[in-house]
Design a binder for these strands. Structure first.
Lengths: 96, 96
DNA sequence: AATAAATGCAATAATATTATTGCATGTCAA
DNA sequence: TTGACATGCAATAATATTATTGCATTTATT
């Protein structure tokens, strides 16, 4: 992994909304965007717009933290933990 | 640790300049601001202004990651790893 | 074929972050 | 006590991030 990818990952997990998305997708993988929005409203109280969630998912995807597939008109999201673990191993681990 | 502090920590380590500062202060603790600037120039090639470094150190301090003391006119900085380890335990650990 | 559903694209606005510059303050040393 | 040293404070500028809105596209259903 190069420095820029490492940086994207640390920036991706710097936002609390994205950390909650990661948490939820770990509890229940293979969620549609629609469902992620619904869960955000249900669990966080305040509702974000669909586009706000989309942009957070884009950030996660560019950081390589997302596994995405399509089923018809539905986009299905899961978390790919490998790059997160790699980033932790590359930088964080030496300080733990 | 409350959510806001957790967030400050993850934001603090999201910036590559700050991660390098953490790395250097771990290798050689008890560095003055002046010395941190000098090392930044020496090791990163491109020089940041003293004030840029100061602001990064402020961010680290507000995240609780810095131990600071004064010796005359010299401010001495070290890294306090405990909050970083706590943040990792609170959020990151469950995904590793 | 028409409608509804799920998502994409693009522009905008508000705010936050990062780096710079200039000047001020406190401290040591000759 | 003068001058140099180490740092603080404050304003500014440039860029990045976050969230919103409106419209478009693709797919499924009736």
């Amino acid at each position: 992994m190069d420095d820029e990818q490492l940086d994207r990952i640390f920036k991706a997990i710097a936002d609390p909304t994205r950390r909650r998305i990661i948490d939820r997708l770990r509890e229940r993988p293979d969620q549609s965007l629609f469902h992620i929005c619904a869960l955000s409203v249900a669990e966080d109280g305040e509702a974000l717009s669909r586009q706000a969630i989309t942009q957070h998912l884009d950030t996660l995807e560019k950081a390589g933290l997302l596994h995405v597939s399509w089923s018809g008109r539905t986009k299905i999201h899961s978390i790919d933990l490998i790059p997160l673990q790699a980033a932790a191993a590359l930088w964080l681990r030496k300080h733990l």
